[in-house]
Design a protein around this nucleic acid. Structure first.
Lengths: 366, 366
DNA sequence: TTGAAAGCGCTAACAC
DNA sequence: GTGTTAGCGCTTTCAA
């Protein structure tokens, strides 16, 4: 409807229309049973006929709680896809998409899952969810903007500088996702990177009996990568292998770079297994290995970490460690609610379990 | 940080710490240039040392605008995946995922894209985004909750009953996505379903010269389906074909049902082309056609509509009409902002262009 | 350039 | 049961 010259109706309008006080209107909304039925009906009729919608802001201000939780994600990658061979017909573009290389948009999908989990949990608890992607220089503004409107804030690791987060945390509970930040005083929820990688590596080394391994790590400053690498080393020790036995290279978690690294690796010597610190890298490795004419898993097994969708569709499908991103979002909301009821107390960290998914690139047995 | 026994600081706290009035604090925040530098510095220092974050609610209340737009999506499908053959080791589950049938989670991905588009646009305009998935009986509550906290609301078609929407629209601008609801008085943004299907069908009939066609429609009450079907009929007329020539069946937009329908279809007679009203159906049809030992596109071409991810990974890859979901979200926010500056005026409808993506299941030429 | 004061729309005592 | 009233934390005239 677009008709609307007047200001939106308020409790006062409803009250006078129904011939009651504003307190009674408020009661009808919040504690209906405390109002006589006849009165209630009159008020409800007034609400309907006026088109009254209570102001969440006034309510939050008076009630000292907003009923909203915030979720701060890293900036969505706004990568407009390129499209080949375009023809236009009758206003509708026709694209020959046959050779279109499917682009990895994985990281976005990740956040989407977190978001969905958070939304679900928030809804179940009667809370609304406010999302923001903290990118660009105006990040401070956004953070403050969001922080000022919510009862608690969940922030994905490395989205916001610690200093800013600490400022915000003096006002509302903050929980950091995907990184254990207890040392900084934050509650946090992360995923059991180390155990996941250790278990997967144990499969490769112990179960499959492979001894010739290359390890494709990620950026050295990634906390995820550090934990995964630690888990990997742990598995080596478990089986009496010296880490030195393994050729380790550092990538950037990207597919392209991993492809290059894998090529170099294969030029030197072909390991029996290539274990990667994330799925994107593993897909890049897969590209290189297959391009070299090697067969996976027969000549070479390849593993990833994350459980991105692309790994379910690759050929061969990618063995990986699946992170429960939806659960991460859900747990975040739960943690905020918990902290709201118990403001004091030491920071807590929750570790969510991961799952090893054995697929064709590194099967249960050879 | 978890230390926090006291209430969050307010303008008053900042004001007295800086030895100024609350008005000055407000000015420092909103119109810094209107305050002498020395004063400003003192205030900013106080803000930092107190950990002051302005209350968005109080601000919205006083300022009569929230700076937030709402996005209402249909309930996320909370379909916990089933997992086969589980083994546990050291706390980490190991799953033999080799035969795991990839489940279609497409519709969710859709909303995710809309969401991302909306978030991006909102951010660029300095607005925050509040999301909610309106499911269950408490939908009314949610809608009112969200509506009371935002300056405008974007709603995906069929998420909220018209009546409720009209109520809300008396307070704030409402824009409906994916369905032209001008007749009900709403601004709306949709996708050019008819032109998309017409163009695709013209390719099949005109370019490829196919005359033996089956059409798998969706639920009769779906506005999307109606438009697509109209576009299809239009293409038939364009080429002098009577709609009666085409065998039409109605599915439910789901893969499973489409598989059944296709089987029945093939039992009767094998058409040269099967045009489907959405991708899920087309994937189901593909399943059935291939299971029957027919080759696609050699024996049979198959087309979908939507442009879901699964269609990029299917074998053969699915020819389809791609809807710009991200643009839908972006346009929604823009429409709200527009309407905010121009409350009066007839409802507007925006049609976004679609793209035909020719892939292997129905290539540019045979 | 700064301060005082009047709301913004609601909730929650506290009276009646 | 229902009404009165004092805030909730901020913005914004209007004066000074």
């Amino acid at each position: 409807m677009t008709t609307q010259g007047t200001a939106p109706p308020t409790v006062y309008d409803v009250a006078s229309a129904a011939g009651v006080s504003i307190a009674t209107v408020s009661r009808v909304l919040r504690t209906p049973d405390a109002v006589r039925e006849a009165t209630r009906d009159r008020v409800q009729a007034a609400i309907r006929s006026l088109g009254y919608v209570p102001s969440g802001n006034a309510r939050a201000l008076a009630g000292r709680r907003t009923g909203v939780v915030g979720l701060l994600l890293p900036g969505f990658d706004v990568v407009p896809d390129e499209r080949p061979d375009v023809v236009t017909d009758g206003g509708v573009r026709i694209v020959d998409d046959r050779r279109h290389v499917t682009q990895p948009t994985s990281s976005n999908l990740y956040f989407d899952e977190v978001l969905r989990g958070a939304e679900t949990e928030a809804w179940q608890r009667g809370l609304a969810l406010m999302v923001a992607a903290g990118r660009g220089p105006s990040r401070d503004v956004i953070v403050n903007d969001v922080a000022g409107r919510v009862d608690g804030l969940a922030v994905l690791a490395q989205t916001v500088p610690d200093e800013l987060l600490e400022h915000v945390a003096r006002r509302i509970p903050v929980v950091v996702l995907a990184d254990d930040r207890r040392s900084r005083g934050f509650d946090s929820i992360s995923v059991d990177n180390a155990a996941g990688m250790r278990t997967l590596a144990a499969h490769v080394i112990g179960r499959l009996g492979i001894r010739s391994i290359a390890y494709v790590a990620g950026p050295v400053d990634s906390p995820d990568d550090q934990e995964r690498t630690a888990g990997f080393k742990r598995a080596l020790e478990d089986h009496g292998l010296a880490p030195a036995v393994v050729r380790t290279v550092h990538g950037d978690f990207g597919r392209v770079r991993a492809r290059e690294l894998a090529r170099a690796l294969l030029d030197e010597r072909v390991p029996r297994a290539i274990v990667c610190s994330n799925d994107q890298s593993a897909l890049g490795v897969l590209d290189a290995v297959l391009a070299r004419g090697l067969r996976v898993p027969d000549d070479d097994v390849v593993t990833g970490f994350d459980g991105i969708d692309a790994g379910r569709y690759s050929v061969p499908r990618l063995t990986t460690v699946h992170q429960p991103m939806g659960d991460l979002g859900r747990a975040a909301v739960r943690a905020i609610v918990d902290r709201l009821d118990r403001r004091e107390g030491p920071p807590r960290a929750l570790r969510l379990p991961v799952e090893v998914l054995l697929r064709e690139s590194c099967p249960p047995s050879l």
